[in-house]
Amino acid sequence: METIIQGVFNGALMGCTYALIALGLSLIFGVMNVVNFAHGDFVMLSMYFTFWAGSIWGVDAALTPLITFPLLFSFGIIVYYGLINRTLREHYTIQIAVTVGLMTFLRAITQLVWHAQPRALPYSFIQGNIHLGGYVIALSRLTSATISLIIIAGISFFLSKTWPGRTIRATSDDLDAASLMGVDFQKTYALAFGLGSSLTAIAGSLLMTFQQVDPTMGLRFGLLSWCILALAGLGSIPGLLISGLIVGVGESLAMTFWDPRARSLVIYLIFILVLWLRPRGIFGRK
């Protein structure tokens, strides 16, 4: 029984960071209807940059979000204007080709630069465990989850109470109407893309406080974020968080009781089930 609860704890903590990654994807897919196949690879890229910052300059992993956030935000803007914007009016297969191309490129680059073996950082200053009623919780995982939740709440506030956030929501609701109000939709899309990408940066950096990175991480996080998005549906941030928790816990329990190698398999299973039984997601409105 204790193993189950321990598994649930760990899974839930991971789920918060997974939800952050999925939120980034939701900002891109939900707003401009672009399927970004490279999303998981952005996380991976951020993890590798974090590794560099840590191993070359000795920056503690816990502080790297300050570096990777602006880095991937700018990267997102460049990708938007360089690739995505030009394909918006084209057939969707062109969009898919472009983001798959980006994905392949990123995976090749990371293998070239960092090679295939896993990379990890020495322990962050956030280390050790806390004990809660007999259960062990790694401080790094707890911090990662907490910061993820704070950011998710921040994005929620941003979307509902600020002008750029409101504009993003309006543009995703009705593009023509937003243009009639005077909204430059290209700038809005670029902001959404940049913001969505930078959320992956934060998640990636946080993950490096207790995980290692290798070139297969892109595939793993890509699958994860699409699965969570499918489960949650579009339009609800709380729904996204809950779905993140479900996937995190599912993965954790599968690894504990079934087989550690089953972690991807169980995600695929959840994904297939959701698409089969309720394609618009549990909380979705579109």
Binding site: D173, D174, A177, G235
Partner: peptide, 11 residues
């Protein structure tokens, strides 16, 4: 004011 209103339905 467009035909059909074109409101932001979810706002």
């Amino acid at each position: 004011v467009p035909e059909g209103g074109k409101l932001f339905s979810n706002m």
